[in-house]
């Protein structure tokens, strides 16, 4: 049981040590700073495209959306255009809500707020899965966007806007960016859920813990560099711009912690295509959500539809003709 999360934890720790020691001890900056990131990005891009193409190459023989509301039917019956869409527009809204608000996950919690017998408002613990998931994904996105400042020169205005709002509480120096801490908090929550909720821990695999530990590791090293060890930002930017412009340089004065951070990010990127983290691509292609429920209106074509043997009426009548005639049922051939 324990090994399901102890092994991934140890693994992530070793990855950290490998990079840290590799840089501080063996001076392998070029390897962890240049070779690995390029390889990881390549693996990510190639793997991601390969996986998505793999899905796209599989046929969609039938139109089988999960319908979650009233169908389009008689004109006076009110259709639920989003949960049971019959048009592309409806499907689009459904997908947007699904992708940006995790609507199906929220359904989990719809009945979660209830009044009990004593009319006291109760809620189910499940709401935190939805909240935790939202916090996790959005803070991840924000952190990712903020980091673009290291790869772009000049820094685009939209990224500055993101930064402005992320640091809006104006506390500390350097100003505290909420997203980093939110990401760490949400990841820890999702991890705790996997360890302490017997139901979820029972269904979890080692492969579910690994990315969580990895992301926690990335967040912790990032936070450490920003607020505690105060990494040399100019050096980092020189380094990242070097990567982005394909003229990689190894700056002076940037330590092992930074390379460990970069290394873990690289591992995460390379890990995405071979893991469940591909769900970010899969959600767009999921046939139960991205199709309109209009099969009775418009014929859907199955690319591999093939003819099958059927028991024809003629065979049927041949078999039962006498009995049918006796019972007064009409027949095609009267022999």
């Amino acid at each position: 049981m324990k090994q399901k999360y102890m092994l991934p934890l140890t693994g992530v720790f070793l990855l950290f040590l490998l990079a840290y020691a590799g840089v501080e001890g063996a001076g392998m900056q070029w390897f962890f700073g240049i070779v690995v990131p390029y390889a990881a990005v390549l693996a990510f891009l190639a793997g991601f495209v390969y996986r998505v193409m793999g899905w796209a190459s599989s046929a969609v023989p039938f139109r089988i959306p999960t319908t979650c509301g009233q169908q389009k039917s008689l004109p006076w019956i009110k259709q639920n255009r989003i949960d049971n869409p019959d048009t592309t527009a409806g499907v689009f809204v459904r997908m947007v809500l699904e992708i940006f608000l995790f609507r199906s996950l929220f359904r989990n919690t719809k009945a979660a707020f209830n009044r009990n017998e004593k009319n006291k408002l109760t809620y189910s613990w499940e709401i935190f899965l939805w909240l935790g998931a939202l916090a996790f994904h959005y803070s991840f996105l924000t952190v990712l966007l903020r980091h673009l400042r290291f790869f772009l020169n000049p820094v685009p205005a939209c990224i500055k806007v993101v930064e402005y709002f992320d640091g809006i509480i104006q506390v500390g120096l350097p100003i505290v960016m909420l997203s980093g801490f939110l990401l760490l908090g949400a990841a820890l929550f999702l991890l705790a859920r996997r360890i302490f909720d017997e139901k979820v821990s029972y269904i979890s695999l080692a492969a579910d813990y690994f990315p969580l530990f990895l992301i926690i590791g990335i967040a912790v090293t990032g936070i450490f560099m920003r607020y505690f060890t105060k990494v040399d930002i100019l050096g980092v930017k020189t380094f990242t711009m070097g990567l982005a412009t394909f003229h990689p340089v190894i700056p002076e004065g940037v330590g092992g912690l930074f390379y460990a951070h970069i290394f873990m990010v690289s591992i995460l990127f390379a890990y995405i295509p071979v893991s469940k983290l591909m769900h970010m691509g899969g959600i767009f292609l999921s046939p139960t959500r991205n199709m309109a429920n209009n099969t009775r209106m418009k014929r859907h074509i199955n690319p591999w539809n093939y003819d099958v043997d059927i028991h024809t009426y003629e065979q049927y009548e041949d078999h039962f003709r006498d009995k049918m005639i006796d019972a007064g049922l009409p027949v095609d051939k009267k022999e």
């Binding site: 009945a111 979660a112 209830n114 009990n116 109760t122 189910s124 613990w125 909720d197 017997e198 139901k199 821990s201 029972y202 269904i203």
Partner: peptide, 16 residues
């Protein structure tokens, strides 16, 4: 089983 007991003990809605 414990993973089932977790569900039985926690969800308050009598229909769920």
């Amino acid at each position: 089983p414990p993973e089932t007991a977790r569900v039985l003990g926690r969800i308050k809605n009598r229909f769920d």
